[in-house]
Design a protein around this nucleic acid. Structure first.
Lengths: 331, 331
DNA sequence: CTGAAAGCGCTTACAG
DNA sequence: CTGAAAGCGCTTACAG
């Protein structure tokens, strides 16, 4: 029943028979402490169950050792990225905490600026779109690395926004005889959606195939279904390049409702390699993304910036096409 | 170029022409401060952009104001629960940070105990299974509310582990003429999986219908597919009660591979109402869960415990059956 | 190699 | 209603 307080470095000092300063030196490994003393201190800390008070340390060092990761509630991919980001943060000696921000891009930006102004984080990594200009004006506060910066900087190394595999899809499908394409785009707030759209437009142009245009513009499956239902009679054979698997699932559904066979009347590609995509009938051709590693790289971008180091230049693509039934024999 | 430090309460005091203590009283609203002085202080704080140093406050108050939410990388549902939990934490005046824990239940439990021992959190809420006994021994550290506790306490109020709608599924399907059932269970580390299994067994018993038993035992879609492929020829007509939509997607796939029609030869129910389930062919009958509210309620359980208040007793189920094509006309 | 001392920025009795 | 002062638990020059 005694209100027992957690042990402090003073308690460790008493137990080890040294001064409190020596405890601090032994624990941080900074002072010049004899091995014998250090061992004694470590031993004492262990036995009495000492844990440094992080708030006190933080106040002295003016460093919180904390990083914020900003994400949204809807973005399921982010769950996969969290693990990698947390791992990279831990490697760099930071604690990472996740904040789910909702509302419009403006709302989220406002909340993010609050987080930055609060000064409790040494850096912030944003996985969701925010208003870049607003961030720029707040330059004297907490450093923020946004998904956009991530996209831009890592464009050449196989990152999330690298949409070059869209070109591979279209090239393979054109070689298999498809001449009529349509793109189902995601929300253009996302760099990944914008670049998939851009690569699509460039590829159809380059290959001289017919494009029925860019449909969609947001992520729900219903958008994919509606898009197919809106197509004129006699459209097939058609190749649909969808911006992700959810949209592609909507396409499959729309095709089924119209009595269009897949593959056959229509082929479709997705993106993200969601688990369900391997189990639809037909199963979905898609792009597998190593979200975990993407999260890790994004976080490394932030920690490198905090240390004033140049951004790491990782090698190896995080993307890989998974050919499945929805594109027939096009692979 | 001047290394400009963030303003402190001292700076506010100087600007407002009062003592630093008065600033603290005005800001926390605790002291007896005249309205005029308070306004002057607030005004001064505003103009110089003052933000309280949370580490310093925390050291004095011995309260971090921080809560940890423990989740896993695979659990996509949790993304939906995070928003609600964060909201409830904020309402209670806490900052919530998410930690993704991986590995076995033992690994995760060890990491959770570390988090608890670190004493930087006032409480911890776990969405993933941990070893309950290990938690109990560490009773003097940070309070932990686990998914299991959540499941137990809220059993009667429509929570995540309430599986009573499984009975509704089976009753309706039996009434529609189905006489042969099979359950596709999730991992029994999860209370929700265990209770769905239990309700299934009770329902087939009560209704006197034939059960081919409980298959599965983990969450991947492949498990659902394999289960269907393992069924003997001549099994249909059959009703499959799957523990979630992913497993149900595997069932759909397995049925397609065997040439069994759905609905017809086989009907199937899922759980969780994943977006894709509305777009499979046939679309999946499932249970819609208000994950956001579930997250909110779980967090309230923790904050109530921290305040020594009784657990809130929310009303209203979070669950609702969504009848779709995969069960034919059974609704 | 070790210790005494200052101070990080707050909150909160205690005087007045 | 307001101010002077102590102290939360650390880190880090500075002496010795």
């Amino acid at each position: 029943m005694t209100e027992t307080r957690p042990p402090t470095s003073h308690d460790v000092a008493r137990a080890a028979g040294v001064s409190q300063a020596t405890v601090s030196y032994a624990l941080t490994g900074k002072g010049a402490i004899s091995q014998a003393t250090r061992d004694r201190v470590l031993q004492a800390a262990e036995t009495i169950g000492y844990r440094p008070n992080l708030a006190a340390r933080s106040m002295r060092t003016r460093r919180s050792g904390r990083l914020a990761l900003v994400t949204g509630v809807g973005a399921d991919n982010h769950m996969r990225m969290l693990g990698g980001a947390g791992e990279a943060a831990a490697e760099a000696g930071y604690a990472m905490e996740t904040h789910c921000l909702e509302g419009t891009a403006e709302d989220r930006t406002a909340r993010l600026l609050e987080l930055a102004a609060g000064r409790q984080f040494e850096g912030i990594l944003a996985f969701i779109p925010v208003v870049a200009e607003a961030l720029a004006t707040a330059s004297d506060s907490t450093p923020v690395v946004t998904a956009t910066a991530f996209d831009d900087q890592m464009h050449s190394v196989g990152d999330l926004a690298d949409a070059s595999l869209i070109d591979d899809f279209i090239t393979a499908l054109a070689a298999a005889g498809y001449r009529r394409f349509v793109h189902l785009a995601g929300s253009d707030k996302w760099a990944s959606a914008r670049s998939r759209r851009a690569v699509y437009l460039a590829a159809v142009e380059r290959l001289g195939v017919e494009s029925l245009g860019v449909l969609g513009g947001d992520w729900p499956a219903e958008t994919g279904r509606r898009a197919v239902l809106s197509l004129p009679e006699g459209t097939p054979p058609l190749a649909v390049i969808a911006a992700n698997d959810i949209l592609a699932a909507g396409v499959l559904r729309g095709a089924a409702e119209r009595g269009w066979s897949v593959p056959g009347d229509l082929v479709v590609t997705g993106w993200d390699n969601y688990e369900f995509g391997g189990y639809t009938t037909p199963s979905l051709t898609t792009v597998d993304l190593d979200f975990r590693e993407a999260g890790r790289r994004a976080m490394r971008l932030l920690t490198a910036a905090l240390r004033g180091e140049p951004a790491p230049d990782p090698t190896g693509s995080l993307q890989r096409i998974v050919w499945r039934e929805s594109t027939g024999a096009a692979a």
